[in-house]
Simulated assay, not measured.
Amino acid sequence: MIWEDGFYLWFLLLIPLLYGGYWWHKRQQGERRSEYFDNRLVQQLRKNFWKTGDKVRLISFLAATLFFIVALAGPKIGTEVREVQRKGVNLMVALDLSTSMNAEDVRPSRLEKAKFEINRLINRLQGDRIGLLIFTDQAFLQVPFTTDYSALRLFIDIANSDQMPSGGTNFSAAMRTAQDSFNSLDEQEQGNAADVLLFVGDGENHGPGYDAQLEELVESNVVTFSIGIGTPNGAPIPVYDENGTLASYERDNSGNTITTRLESDAMRNIANAGGGEYYEIRSGSDNIEPFFSRLDELERGEFSSQEFADYKNQYQVLLGIGLFFLMITLFFPETKPRIFEK
């Protein structure tokens, strides 16, 4: 047997306290009575008093308290089989980890803000399968489609531009990797759920054209949404030393400080061609709340049906017994019934 909330069992200590309070009250009452009346007069005044009935009401009250407290703690005895169905969409998040995502025109940085919004998205998911791919000029599938949201959060938290071999950006490679991930789902795993690609970055693309890869996603019924992070004015790309102190800014071959800007047109075109919507984050207070609503509108498939055994909460039985003793406390006669009189 286990308990839903064993903390409530501490309230069982109230039972001896209640009994002790009752005993002390009766003793004080008897002492005060003896100051004014002798025992013979008290017996006359309390001629119909039934001492046994008084004890029955006390015991019933304490028993009711006992069962109510134990019921409140939620005893779980035995097992029951439950069936859980997972329904949702297949969502792949493509996160840009190029060095330009370290720019701080969106506080605390473009990348940290993107990670924060993705974590907010994960918190809203219910049964959806989600994967994570990261890309610069190369793309890597970091987390295949999964419903293990805790594990996914760990990979998102450690994502940074230092883990990638280079700092450029190649949209085509990211889209190709996303396509391979969706193709890896067989018909049973697919579950007639909508396939969604969420493209997150600042829009700077240093690789080849990606129109062919985007068209292939559309032909595969993958709906592509995009999130642009940054500002049109842009910002330099900071470089921090191992102590976390700002050392310098990224520079080009001529020694000039590089300014990275949000390429909103590129991100908007990706969403428009992919059948989704474009969202923009220009400040730390912006969010992707509208995307949550659109995600709820997409077709949700049934991925799997699982059965598991769980302890069954039996508080109802104890609650019924407690009510029975409470009824005895309230309605048991205070005077001796005639059938017990000699």
Results as ranks from 00 to 15, higher is better:
E4W: 09
Y8L: 04
W10R: 13
F11Y: 15
P16L: 07
Y19N: 05
Y19F: 11
G20S: 09
R27W: 15
Q28P: 03
Q29A: 11
E35F: 01
N39W: 07
R40V: 13
Q43E: 15
F49E: 13
W50I: 07
K51A: 12
K55E: 09
V56F: 07
R57I: 07
L58P: 01
L62S: 05
L66D: 01
F67Q: 02
A71F: 11
A73D: 06
I77H: 06
V84A: 15
V84N: 14
V84C: 11
Q85S: 13
R86N: 08
R86V: 05
K87F: 15
S98V: 00
N102W: 00
E104Y: 06
D105Q: 06
R107L: 12
R107V: 10
S109D: 06
I118W: 04
N119W: 00
L121K: 01
R129H: 09
G131W: 00
Q142F: 14
T146K: 06
Q163C: 07
Q163D: 10
Q163S: 11
M164Q: 06
G168F: 01
S172K: 11
A174G: 05
S181W: 03
S181I: 05
D186M: 03
E187F: 13
G191V: 01
N192V: 10
G201W: 00
D202G: 01
E204Q: 14
H206W: 12
G207T: 01
Y210I: 01
Y210N: 04
Y210E: 03
L214D: 00
E215R: 12
V222C: 05
S226F: 03
I227A: 11
P232H: 14
N243Q: 12
G255C: 08
R261C: 05
E263H: 10
N269T: 08
N272Q: 15
A273E: 15
G274T: 10
S283I: 06
S285W: 03
D286M: 02
R294V: 03
L295H: 00
Q306N: 13
F308R: 13
Y311P: 11
N313C: 13
Q314A: 15
V317M: 05
L319K: 02
F324C: 09
F324L: 14
L326H: 10
K336A: 12
